[in-house]
Design a protein around this nucleic acid. Sequence first.
DNA 1: TAGAGGATTGAT
DNA 2: TCAATCCTCTAC
Length: 195
Amino acid sequence: MNILPESFYIRKNVTQIARQLLGKKLVTNTLTQRTSGIIVETEAYSFRERGCHAYDNRMTHRNKSMFEKGGVAYVYLCYGIHHLFNVVTNQPGMADAVLIRALEPMEGLEWMKERTKTNSIKRITSGPGKLTKALGIDRTFNGKDLNSSEVWIEEGIKLLPRQILASERIGIDYAGEDALLPWRFSIKDNIWVSK
DNA sequence: TAGAGGATTGAT
DNA sequence: TCAATCCTCTAC
């Protein structure tokens, strides 16, 4: 086990961090049960662009953990149904974050099935709202340090640059031309990437 | 304090 | 294509 240090998160280039998170392993450890998966899809968000909740340094009750130091979680409820998990990056006051959009399941498959009430692991973590449910992530994780006993990210698999795909982010039409930024990153040909 | 809408998902 | 579902944010 090799947990990513705080210095990995406290950097300015959020798209570089989003790329480098591909292949890393996200782990949750709740109720003494461990579940984990390899990150296969991410999206970068920055206070400098319109797709971000913290655009133009707008701080609200919901997004204030984005303004904390890199290396904590930003979790919020989307559409009243799904929890979305982000990794906060950059220095305090610089509200950047990386949304984790899909995982390839590794440990705790039985627990994932129980949490999501399904019998098949097919596509069980291939979407931002689904992976949080499978890993037991909810808003109590908001603001948590990514080096706590309940959630962390560790080294996973090595990737070659040509295995990484960049494309437009999903579901942010309201962001105008910022919606066209190629800030979504995924592992090429990985079946766990969201549809 | 009311009203609109969302970084999604799964069923039709 | 559409509903589920509820919290957040904005405007009044």
